[in-house]
Nucleic acid binder design. Structure first.
Length: 361
DNA sequence: CTAATCATTCGATCCAGCTT
DNA sequence: AAGCTGGATCGAATGATTAG
């Protein structure tokens, strides 16, 4: 992609860019993208640090992006939007903004609703607290709608690629044989139901607990004192749609990339990817997802220098306090050195294993 | 005026340490 | 060496009320 701006970083399959997605989207060639998958900022009542748009302004705000989405998608391409619901201020009733969005995308821009999905997070906090845990007049909101939209009525898709293991009772049925007959509903269950397809066709309810608390990304964020992106979807979500809707070598775009989980998953699945993100801190930390990148990060080296300077130069604090800080920072420095050493041996190991597999090939 | 407090939840993952 | 167990961790919360 010949963008006017340089990428923030580049990997084997992808590029991440810093800035407003709209400026980049406008430079992408028409009908060149296979999948746009994203989790835009939701219209939450309590605004987050990454910036939220109000429910009343949401559809017009999104439309500017959606026009470009439609232009850059191939006819076989899909647009997948993970969008959380929200509440009307001051009363226990739901906002309609995410429904209004999907209707506007179809009615105004001519997108097709290929299918609606729901992401169920069983370990979601019981919220909204006022209505769920204080007054107890609603139940916890643990579902995110995911709109799968397409540019034409027949986007590229193949559910053979996302079969899930058969349940125990289905395995038993396959062993014992299906009783072929007309069901009361009129559904004709034929002998064909006894065919073993090596896996079940998944439903449109994706059950994924979002409980990442100790991943490499989070540990490195903690280590370098960077605030992790507070709103990350689980890897399983982009993985499902990338496998379902694209082939290796296809192009996947995430215009609201955040900590760039989409890029990480696309890289693993050998799809080309483009990620756009407004906040430099989030994009910088997303380098932690790509081992080859993060040690080249100025953040990584600068933090170590800063720590060394601070230990010797800070005279404004009283003596006890300064000793305490110096000690904690020395410990921090030690742990970074250890981490760096451990990581470089790890990289050597990886290189070795890569070489040996190359030879095998 | 702003800031703090209150109500509530449960599963995935990583890691260290132990057992087989 | 491989497998298991248990501990630590943390999460796209909100609005009313009280304290400062």
């Amino acid at each position: 992609m010949p963008f006017t701006q340089e990428p923030f970083y580049t990997t084997q399959y992808g590029k991440a860019y810093l800035g407003d997605a709209i400026t980049y989207l406008r430079q992408i060639k028409r009908e060149s993208v296979d999948l746009i998958i994203t989790s835009p900022p939701f219209a939450l009542k309590r605004k987050k640090e990454y910036g939220n748009v109000d429910a009343t302004d949401y559809v017009p705000w999104f439309m500017d992006f959606a026009v470009e989405f439609r232009r850059i998608l191939k006819d076989s391409g899909s647009l997948v939007i993970d969008i959380g619901g929200t509440w009307i201020k001051g009363q226990p009733t739901r906002s309609l903004y995410h429904f209004e969005l999907v209707i506007a995308l179809c009615r105004t821009l001519g997108f097709h609703l290929a299918q609606e999905f729901y992401w169920y997070n069983p370990s979601k906090l019981p919220s909204p607290a006022e209505w769920v845990t204080v007054r107890r007049v609603r139940v916890k909101d643990a579902i995110n709608p995911i709109w799968w939209l397409s540019k034409t009525p027949d986007p590229k898709a193949n559910n053979w690629k996302i079969l899930k293991p058969y349940s125990d009772s289905m395995k038993k049925l396959l062993e014992d044989g299906y009783k072929a007959k007309l069901r009361p509903s009129g559904h004709d269950i034929s002998e064909n139901f006894s065919k073993d397809n090596q896996g079940a066709i998944p439903p449109n309810l994706l059950s994924l607990a979002n409980t990442d608390s100790n991943s490499g990304y989070l540990r490195k964020c903690r280590e370098y004192g960077i605030k992790p992106h507070p709103a990350r979807f689980p890897h399983g979500l982009p993985e499902f749609f990338i496998k379902f809707l694209t082939d290796p070598g296809d192009l996947v775009v995430d215009p609201f990339a955040g900590s760039n989980i989409t890029g990480e998953v696309a890289e693993q699945l050998e799809r080309k990817w483009l990620a756009f993100e407004l906040a430099e801190e989030y994009l910088e930390a997303s380098k932690f997802r790509f081992q080859s990148l993060y040690e080249q990060s100025p953040l990584f080296n600068q933090q170590i220098e800063n720590t060394q300077q601070r230990v010797v130069s800070d005279n404004e604090i009283d003596d006890d306090k300064r000793d305490e800080i110096a000690l904690s920072q020395l410990t921090l420095l030690e742990s970074r050195k250890k981490y760096k050493a451990k990581n470089s041996t790890q990289q050597k190991k990886n290189k070795h294993s890569q070489l040996s597999t190359d030879q095998d090939d």
